[in-house]
Design a protein around this nucleic acid. Structure first.
Length: 370
DNA sequence: CGGGTTTGACCCGCGC
DNA sequence: GCGCGGGTCAAACCCG
C-alpha cells in the first residue's frame, strides 16, 4: 500500500504539476523503440550497465541495446542499427508484450505527418511475419534479433496477413476504414458484450511503443488523455498507468510505465489510432519525420530492446560521427511536437527542451504539412 | 459544475 | 479448475 502511495506520488507529480514538468523538460529524451518481444511485465529489457551513469542526462546520447547472449553485440554503426519503432500487434495477452508485431520500418515516412497517419497509410506486418528492420550492413545483435534471423520482407507494404495476428490486423483495418464505432462500443459496452467474448477472442488494436528517457511519466504528446486506471506492475516498483484519448469517438489508449530497471526510462505504449487531429496541434503531434541527412541533433537516447529473452543489456555511446546511411528509405524516428500554444509547457519543451535533442533543426523548421 | 484522477473491484485470458 | 496478472470499470474524490 505504501508502495502504491509512493507510486501514485510519482505519477501525480509528473502528471499534475506543470511546473515540475517544465522543470524537468530538459531531462526528457524520447525514443521510439524497436523490439521484438518485450516483456513489459518483467520490464527486463533494459539493464543499463553499471559503468554507465544513466542518471546523468548529460551523458546522453546513449544507446541501449540488448542481447540474449553474454557477448556484447558489436557497436552500432549506423543509424539503422538503432532504428527504433515497433508495432505491437493485437490479440495478445494483456500486459505481456511478447510476440510483438513488428512493422516494417524500412519505409519512407515522409508522407505521414504523424505516426498515426503513417499507420493509416501502411499495413501492419504481423508477428509471424518478417520484418525488414535494419538494413544495416553492420547487423548488430545478429544472434538475438529475430528481425535479422527472419527473412526480410521484400516488400514491406505488401504483406498484411498474419496467422496469429489477424485479429490485430483486423482491428487495425477497422481503424483504417473508419470503423471506430465498433471499437468504441466494444469498450463502452464491454460488460454487455461479455457473453460474446467467450467465443470471440478479444481483439486488440496494433500497438506502438516507444521509450523515453524522462523523469516525466506522462509526456505531453499533443493529445488529451484521461487516466482510467493504474495498476501495480509485477516485479516493478512502478505502476502502470492507463490513459484514454478524451476526444469523442477516439478510442486510442496508451499505457505508461517506468522500467523497473531504470527508473529514468518511461515506456509508453499507444494502442489504436486517433481519428482526429490533435486538439492542441493542427495535426497529430507525434510526427515521424523523414530525415535523409541523419540525426542532426544526434543527442537522442535510443533504447533498443532487441529480443525475446532479454538478459543482458549493453549501452553504447552514439556519437555524432555515426555512419548515417542516406538512402531514400531511411528515416529518422523522431518525435515532433508540432505547433502548440506558446504558453504551454509543452511548447517550452519543444522550444528548449526535448525537441531540440531529438529532432534535427532543419526538420523543426519546416514541419510536415499536407 | 465539469473534467480529470484515484483506487478498489471486477473481468478475462492464460498457464499450471 | 484455479490462481495469477493485466486490463477496465466506475464510484469517490479532487481541482480549477
Amino acid at each position: 500500500m505504501n508502495e502504491m502511495k509512493e507510486n501514485n506520488n510519482i505519477s501525480s507529480v509528473c502528471t499534475n504539476s506543470m511546473e515540475k514538468r517544465e522543470e524537468k523538460k530538459e531531462l526528457t529524451r524520447t525514443t521510439i523503440l524497436k523490439r521484438e518481444n518485450f516483456d513489459m511485465a518483467n520490464s527486463s529489457f533494459i539493464t543499463p550497465p553499471p559503468a554507465t551513469t544513466t542518471s546523468d542526462i548529460d551523458q546522453m546520447p546513449s544507446v541501449y541495446a540488448l542481447s540474449t547472449t553474454a557477448t556484447p553485440p558489436p557497436p552500432l554503426n549506423s543509424i539503422f542499427d538503432m532504428m527504433p519503432c515497433d508495432i505491437i500487434g493485437g490479440d495478445q495477452k494483456a500486459g505481456s508484450l511478447g510476440f510483438i508485431d513488428l512493422l516494417d520500418i524500412n519505409q519512407d515516412f515522409g508522407t505521414a505527418a504523424s505516426l498515426f497517419d503513417w499507420f493509416a497509410q501502411n499495413p501492419i506486418v504481423g508477428s509471424q511475419q518478417q520484418q525488414t528492420f535494419v538494413p544495416s550492413p553492420a547487423s548488430t545483435l545478429p544472434e538475438t534479433s529475430e528481425v535479422l534471423n527472419n527473412p526480410a520482407t521484400p516488400n514491406s507494404s505488401a504483406s498484411i496477413s498474419s496467422s496469429s495476428n489477424e485479429a490485430g490486423n483486423d482491428a487495425f483495418q477497422q481503424v483504417k476504414t473508419g470503423d471506430q464505432e465498433e471499437e468504441q462500443d466494444h469498450d463502452k459496452t464491454k460488460k454487455q458484450l461479455k457473453p460474446k467474448k467467450k467465443n470471440q477472442k478479444r481483439q486488440r488494436e496494433p500497438r506502438f511503443a516507444f521509450m523515453t528517457k524522462s523523469e516525466v511519466d506522462h509526456l505531453d504528446d499533443g493529445f488529451r488523455w484521461r487516466k482510467y486506471g493504474q495498476k501495480a506492475v509485477k516485479n516493478s516498483p512502478y505502476p502502470r498507468s492507463y490513459y484514454r484519448c478524451t476526444s469523442a469517438g477516439c478510442g486510442v489508449k496508451k499505457r505508461v510505465e517506468r522500467s523497473s530497471d531504470d527508473s529514468s526510462i518511461v515506456v509508453t505504449t499507444y494502442e489504436g489510432q486517433h481519428i482526429h487531429p490533435s486538439p492542441i496541434t493542427p495535426r497529430g503531434s507525434i510526427g515521424i519525420l523523414t530525415d535523409s541527412t541523419g540525426f542532426g541533433a544526434a543527442t537522442s537516447s535510443f533504447v533498443i530492446p532487441q529480443t525475446q529473452y532479454q538478459q543482458h543489456a549493453y549501452m553504447y555511446s552514439s556519437s555524432p560521427s555515426l555512419n548515417i546511411t542516406t538512402s531514400n528509405t531511411s528515416f529518422s524516428p523522431t518525435f515532433s511536437f508540432h505547433q502548440r500554444r506558446s504558453d504551454s509547457p509543452a511548447s517550452l519543451l519543444r522550444d528548449h527542451g526535448l525537441l531540440q535533442d531529438i529532432v534535427p533543426s532543419q526538420m523543426r523548421k519546416e514541419p510536415k504539412e499536407e
